[in-house]
């Protein structure tokens, strides 16, 4: 248990903005999309209010891809997971902790940034609330998909670009239900988003751990 906390503390130190591997770039990217969208489609308030939520979802999805390049690769190349294995720390535990740290490094800031983004797009209070809840339910799933893909592509040349492409189709269910919640009243779409997220979070550490072990063989 204390080993898990040690791992989490290290991962947070690495991934948080201000840490050696972290950056505020995903956040700025997210805000930039919300800022540019009204310029692109024009100042039609009704159109912005109707489509703004979906744009924020797309921005969140793309922002979640940005940190993937350094999420697993550096530690794999440095032999960190080999040293863990010799200490009896499984790849699954290491990946579970990294999932938590990865989510904490990008999602809370993204949720905060949703307020200025919603204001820029002129979203109503009710829409903003649904959007926030949806992002809260969906971002763990995005983080899980990102982690599994980052681990799978860590040993490939040009893996980062490929990771981005691989995340997009896997994230589509989250996007459908998460953004779909904006169009339908009632909590069912949000609950489905949360269910998909939970499923992905449960599977991701095992998929990523297996990917790390497979990476040793080549």
């Amino acid at each position: 248990m204390s080993a898990a906390l040690n791992l989490l503390r290290r991962d947070l130190g690495l991934l948080m903005p201000g840490g050696s591997g972290g950056s505020v770039l995903p956040l700025l990217f997210f805000l930039a999309v919300a800022m540019l969208y009204p310029f692109a489609v024009g100042p039609d308030a009704q159109l912005l209010a109707r489509t703004g939520g979906g744009i924020i979802w797309i921005a969140a999805l793309l922002a979640a891809i940005l940190p993937l390049e350094r999420l697993v690769k550096d530690d794999l190349e440095a032999g960190v997971f080999d040293q863990f294995a010799l200490r009896g720390i499984s790849e699954e535990l290491a990946m579970a902790m990294r999932l938590v740290a990865h989510w904490m490094a990008f999602a809370p800031l993204l949720l905060l940034a949703t307020f200025p983004a919603a204001a820029l797009l002129g979203l109503q209070g009710e829409t903003t609330r649904t959007l926030l809840l949806g992002l809260l339910a969906g971002t763990p799933g995005l983080a899980a998909v990102g982690l599994a893909v980052a681990a799978l592509s860590a040993t490939m040349r040009g893996g980062a670009a490929l990771a981005g492409l691989m995340v997009i189709p896997l994230a589509v269910p989250i996007l459908i239900f998460g953004a779909g919640a904006l169009a339908r009243p009632g909590p069912s779409a949000l609950l489905l988003t949360a269910a998909i997220s939970l499923g992905l979070c449960a599977v991701a550490p095992f998929a990523a751990g297996a990917a790390l072990r497979a990476a040793r063989e080549n």
Binding site: A3, N6, L7, R10, L14, S20, G21, D74, D75, E77, A78, G79, V80, D82, Q83, L86, R87
Partner: peptide, 27 residues
């Protein structure tokens, strides 16, 4: 078992003392 190979498993951007500190706590 302890392993020393060509891969350092220390965070490149951290001061050495802090990077080793993580492993000391773990061990």
């Amino acid at each position: 078992m302890g392993l020393v190979d060509e891969r350092l498993a220390l965070d490149e951007n951290m001061p050495l003392g802090k990077a080793l500190g993580f492993w000391q706590e773990l061990d």
